[in-house]
Simulated assay, not measured.
Amino acid sequence: MITKRPLVSVVDDDESVRESLPDLLKEFGLSVQTFSSGEEFLASQYVSETACLILDVAMPGMSGPAVQQELLQRQKKIPIVFITAQECEAIRPQLLERGATECLSKPFSDTALREAINAALGTK
């Protein structure tokens, strides 16, 4: 029996993140789609299929928190793991209050990412 692997969508304007994260996520047993902007993700067919969203905080155009807000307005409850090159602690409480699962500062460990995704998906 083939079980469908959960889809994790990665939204980050940094091309190196979009190139490196999919390999790691596939090692975790997940399906992956990448997007270079929040607008690209929100316009895609993958919004309704996404089981977990890895979302950069600061991007040109629509920021990660703006994408989170748009998803809330659309009533799409997708667990979000925020990632940021900046210090996470200043914005972390606000992001978690709005429903994010975690906020990780780059560079983050594979273990920290795996734990955050597992928490988002409700798995161990």
Rank of each mutant, 00 (worst) to 15 (best):
M1Y: 11
T3Y: 12
T3A: 14
R5V: 01
L7S: 08
L7I: 12
L7W: 06
L7T: 06
V8E: 03
V8C: 10
V8D: 01
V8S: 02
S9T: 10
S9D: 05
V11N: 00
D12G: 04
D14W: 05
E15P: 06
V17M: 15
V17R: 08
V17Q: 11
R18L: 15
P22I: 06
D23R: 11
L24V: 14
L24E: 11
L25R: 02
K26H: 12
K26V: 15
K26R: 15
E27A: 11
E27C: 08
F28P: 01
F28W: 06
G29N: 08
G29T: 08
S31T: 11
S31L: 03
V32N: 02
Q33N: 13
Q33C: 13
F35T: 00
S36A: 14
S36C: 12
S36D: 14
E39V: 00
E39K: 09
F41R: 01
L42K: 03
Q45N: 14
Y46M: 10
S48N: 15
S48F: 08
E49T: 04
T50P: 01
T50K: 04
A51N: 15
A51D: 14
C52S: 06
L53Y: 02
I54P: 00
L55I: 08
D56V: 06
V57P: 02
M59G: 05
P60F: 07
P60V: 11
G61F: 04
G61A: 09
M62W: 05
G64K: 00
G64M: 07
P65M: 09
P65V: 07
V67E: 00
Q69W: 07
E70L: 08
E70D: 11
E70V: 13
L72M: 15
L72E: 13
L72Q: 15
R74D: 05
K77A: 14
K77W: 07
P79F: 04
P79Q: 05
I80K: 00
E87G: 14
E87D: 13
E87N: 14
C88R: 11
C88G: 12
C88F: 08
E89W: 03
E89G: 01
I91S: 07
Q94N: 10
L96Q: 05
L96Y: 05
E97Y: 10
E97D: 13
A100W: 02
A100M: 05
T101C: 11
C103W: 01
C103L: 12
S105E: 15
K106Y: 07
F108L: 09
A112C: 06
L113C: 05
R114H: 12
A116R: 01
A116Y: 02
I117P: 04
N118Q: 15
A119T: 13
A120E: 03
A120T: 03
G122C: 07
T123A: 09
T123E: 10
